[in-house]
Design a protein around this nucleic acid. Structure first.
Lengths: 235, 235, 235, 235
DNA sequence: AATGAATGAGAGTTCATTCAT
DNA sequence: TATGAATGAACTCTCATTCAT
């Protein structure tokens, strides 16, 4: 994004993201263990890529944010693409879009156990929304994923695996009589959908709105899960 | 994305979007009505911005796709930012993330009417997922929105207005006895969430997967809506 | 001067001259007599060339200032160069640097007549300093002349002729006993030098300073001329 | 001055300065001490700015003349404006228009001393006229100063200070009886005016004329100074 | 004559990448 | 390893000039 005119009058609403480039760098920090440096660099890259987009992110800024010089950065990664790839590798392990653990199913359990499990699930899910790195990773995935199909091939596969496993568990829960057969057991995604929506809301709406809406959304989400999954009971 | 790295292993998944630049331009198609040109340009811009991201999109490519020269483009928009702003304006009118019409509420109606209304809503919603421009606009909104808070201020406001109106209608539906009081009437967003999830799925997963999952998702979505909203009936 | 960033943040002190581009143009002014239009255009060109320099002046701005469109301008001048050439032609007639009339010499005259003639000369000379067009023309001549030797060939010649004539008159004044033989009659340029200095001062210093210095400079100039040229008298 | 007009009669006097762009660049002269490079760049910039004007000068040419690439140039100066500003800073120290040292005043001295001092002054002053950098700087100052009031604010101030100091010295010379009270002691500028005129002459007239006129001008200037400043003596 | 959309060749500026130190 | 000056290929934006209207 060369000009953005400086000249160019940086009028309100201009693309180069609100936050200014990272700050200067500390004085001479030498020789970190290579893998620590790599992590610092990837953190910096996550920040910059999500802040400006892959194309518009600058190696200079990534380097500065990671606390070394541009030249030093190239000692660890041979190109901008390589940084991006490595970032995608790292982001892969815990599934980001649909949670790394099966949400609700499990061995048969008393009624209260369902409520407990639902609350545990919601706790984890909505907590992640407060994690800056989670939000940025999601942003990056949605923003750059479509134009980099190959880069996220890994994510795609692991996501599919995860979904299948979760779907199977739901089915088993129904067979076991622990869960009611419902729309949610037809498609696990419906369990996750409100969280994705909440995340996107956080990305696009201002904090004030997010803070006021999220609790209501979560409460409704809870009601939905219990309503749909709770077995009517033997009365 | 200035220089195409000629050095390192051009491994699969390198960022420069898959699709090659647009095709060349017809010979001398002079003097279109200004508003027609503007529309052509905005279409082209939507394509390029969503394909490569705002930062990495090239004015040259937008111009070529719109059928004029780079210089000519600047006769209509004074900067890349201005193109982006105009695009965001245009995308604004029909709400993109949550549909421009109240989804399900209305005057009291017989049971069949609810099913009919639900189906109408789902028809519209899932049809839009097939519209390339809708998907691209959503992508652009999520990808660039967070770094351009001002640019999407308009969208944000209209989205809030819409949501409030829809929420009010749901409430009225409940009061009228047309809808059952449920998680969905607590938070309309739950009605839309599965569609957002479907859209993101289309962005990130390959077509094959999308084609196989979407119908099941839609069916479950339908079941959910009817289940939650249908009044138990007087029997 | 493409960017001047815009990008460039138009910080204080940036080259593109303080004054903003000319104002908009009146609504549809048609068909002026060609020579009137030419004059308007040349006036506009003088303004723009002196304000921004030949290279940085824009045909658009010249046209707007002259009250027509860029296309219309090209109906009168076939190129930017042509405008410049015509401007130089026009500026030529009255000598700009050294006054079009012999400054001080003439037929023998009584002592008072010298004072009167000196005052007349100074009146004319210092009045011209208040003429915007004179100052701009001088500026343009000094700014662009050195890089456009051919364009000012005409001026150069006429200036030489003028100088020679004036020198001859001075000599005759001395021979006639009307003027004292002095440094000034050795080189007429010395008579003009203070005025040139005053003009350059007006170009480079702020108005306040100019207003305060010019009168003192003029008074000293007057004293110098009378001192040097006045015949001691027959006492 | 983007496109060299290929159409109209390339008549004599077309703006694009006479001298062709600078020569090519040596092969890979890497890594100069930063301040040396800065100086080289400013020298190059002085040349190019004075040759073509600020607006029409090209960063490419400045870079080439300074012996590095355009991109390298931007490692030292962040914009064309910045180069100009720095150039103006550097030019500031010795006053360019009116000499850095008081011209003629001093402690009382025998008559011959006045002549000696006058000759010293003239030596220095007219020698500077042979210095290409002096002439170019003057040209640049007069050509671009008026459109860049802020850029020359520094020069303006230092020029005023200098003038005041010189004027005070003249006054003291008169009080000491070393100088005659005259037009020149009323306004020091009159002492410098002929030199400014000579400089402008060098800019605008061809060398031949300058060579023939300058000596006569200088002789007359000398006569003027001695005539005006020499105390009548007690004879 | 006049208009202004359109062209196309730059010009200023940015930035991934290299490499002497 | 680390640095940062240097390169060179883009990129955004400008502007003289053309030409359909």
């Amino acid at each position: 994004m060369p000009n953005t005119p400086p000249s160019n009058p940086p009028a309100a609403g201009q693309p180069p993201g609100a936050a200014p480039p990272p700050a200067g760098r500390q004085p001479r920090n030498r020789r970190l263990p290579a893998h620590e440096r790599r992590d610092q660099i990837l953190d910096a890259a996550l920040h910059e890529f999500s802040e400006r987009g892959f194309g518009a992110a600058r190696m200079d800024d990534i380097a500065a944010r990671a606390g070394l010089s541009k030249g030093g950065l190239y000692a660890h990664f041979e190109s901008k693409n390589a940084v991006f790839q490595a970032l995608m590798q790292r982001m892969l392990m815990p599934d980001l879009l649909f949670g790394e653990r099966p949400p609700l199913a499990g061995a048969p359990a008393p009624e209260d156990a369902l409520a407990a499990r639902v609350d545990g699930f919601l706790d984890r899910a909505y907590e992640r929304l407060e994690d800056d790195r989670f939000i940025r990773t999601l942003h990056l995935l949605v923003a750059e994923g479509p134009r980099l199909p190959d880069a996220i091939a890994g994510w795609r596969e692991s996501h599919l695996r995860l979904l299948r496993r979760q779907q199977a568990m739901m089915r088993r829960g129904v067979e076991d009589g622990a869960l009611r057969d419902s729309a949610l057991t037809d498609a696990v995604q419906l369990v996750h959908a409100p969280i994705l929506l909440a995340a996107i809301l956080k990305l696009l709406q201002d904090e004030a709105h997010a803070r006021s809406v999220l609790p209501r959304l979560r409460a409704a989400h809870r009601r939905l899960l219990l309503d749909q999954l709770r077995e009517p009971g033997p009365d």
